[in-house]
Design a protein around this nucleic acid. Structure first.
Lengths: 123, 123
DNA sequence: GGGTTGGTTCGATCCTCGTCAAAATAGGCG
DNA sequence: CGCCTATTTTGACGAGGATCGAACCAACCC
């Protein structure tokens, strides 16, 4: 993996926590770093954007492919993409006229692991 | 004045979506139902509360066991527990003097599945 | 019953967030 | 260069959320 160029304005959510939260209590520090990622997923438009981008052919989508799907203005879409990007759930790249967004699957996978429930858990 | 029997005021987040969001685009309806659950997880205190409850011995925790861990007031803890309860991530039960909270693991597991990344995903 | 502890609701305050219109930036084209 | 399209930034506004103290409800005990 390449090193992070420290471009994200917020501390990266991908902290050192790889343990399901049901297995052992999250520390305050871990919770502070994880919560913003879940918050970013806590908006229906962002959830759809992420899903749409991830399931686009080639794994990436141009902004122009996304805007028409929603009933909100282009600045609003741009705002939500920025939230997803700054938290590290998507990355963006400009190629000529268009800007392409791509889902950061490791980030998603980490969050999935955090929420996962190990087998023997339960009563 | 009859009391409402403590039913969840919001439609249950556990909708008919069991497919990872990277696999196919979420519908607007699915996103509307899933987002509130992620939003509920988007607060550090709620994240810790959930983790603390789930990892308590017996899988449940009394409120009195939780409040001391945090620097916020009891009403604030109660508020966060209510958010988690109304969204279906925890359930509560009064036994005598104390109220016990328990993590709803199927709900967690569903959210985990939504975020999971199938093997062949990607370009 | 009166008092005590556990937990929630109420009301108010402050701050964040989602949204838009308008303006600004970036790139391509004639 | 000037213009057009694509995307982002800015500024403003209203809605919602986190927090607290105070008041309130629930269960136990003497």
């Amino acid at each position: 993996m390449s090193k992070q160029p420290a471009r994200t304005p917020l501390p990266l959510a991908l902290a050192d926590c790889h343990t399901p939260l049901v297995a052992e209590p999250l520390s305050a520090d871990q919770a502070e770093r994880l919560a913003p990622s879940f918050k970013a997923l806590g908006d229906p438009i962002r959830l759809r954007l992420l899903s749409l981008i991830a399931s686009f052919e080639g794994g990436e989508a141009c902004v122009c492919d996304l805007t028409d799907t929603f009933d909100v203005s282009a600045p609003t879409i741009s705002h939500h993409l920025k939230v997803l990007r700054e938290i590290g759930l998507v990355s963006s790249e400009r190629r000529g006229t268009w800007v392409y967004y791509r889902a950061e699957q490791p980030a998603l996978d980490l969050l999935s692991t955090i929420l996962s429930v190990p087998q023997q858990a339960g009563a």
